[in-house]
């Protein structure tokens, strides 16, 4: 995509793009990956603790403890987002705080808080999935396709 566009632009612009690319401050990949690993791992570790608590004290099984764990993590995320902490964690940890379900919660909650000034119905209600929308849409659609293929293969393919 980017290469195609590059070919269509005049040579001076192409030369400039190459030049600007060299001058760009490189993202510190290794440092970012280490930070993402540590924070991401830590969030999952907390998740494991919460999950264990649900199993031992609230009669959940290993399989069913997932849902309350996710809900609890998102509940904690609400406070971290509301007190303006999660965006700082995000700048530090990158994918480490974006990929866990807390990042999903943060994208929903931050959009809800942000658009409150436009009212609760159209502001909060209309924009709450502004960032998380694509995740839900394509999660559902890909799940549909995959489950469809799997169902066809197992139920009819077996015949």
């Amino acid at each position: 995509m980017a290469d195609k566009k590059k070919k269509n632009s005049p040579p001076t612009a192409q030369r400039y793009q190459t030049f600007a690319k060299q001058r760009e401050v490189k993202r510190p990949l290794l440092k970012n990956c280490i930070k993402a690993f540590l924070i991401g791992g830590f969030i999952c570790f907390i998740g494991q603790i919460i999950s264990t608590i649900y199993v031992y004290f609230f009669n959940f099984t290993e399989q069913t403890a997932g849902s309350p764990t996710v809900a609890t993590l998102i509940f904690i995320t609400m406070f971290l987002t509301g007190f303006g902490v999660y965006d700082r964690i995000g700048q530090f940890a990158g994918a480490g705080s974006a990929v866990p379900v807390t990042g999903f919660g943060n994208s929903v909650i931050s959009a809800a808080i942000e658009h409150r000034s436009e009212g609760f119905i159209l502001g909060v209600g209309g924009n709450i999935f502004k960032l998380a929308g694509p995740v839900i849409v394509y999660g559902v659609f890909s799940a549909f396709i995959i489950a469809l293929i799997k169902t066809i293969l197992t139920q009819w393919g077996g015949l």
Partner: peptide, 9 residues
């Protein structure tokens, strides 16, 4: 969990 996040990074 950390490794999955590294892939994201």
């Amino acid at each position: 969990g950390g490794t999955i996040c590294v892939i994201g990074q």
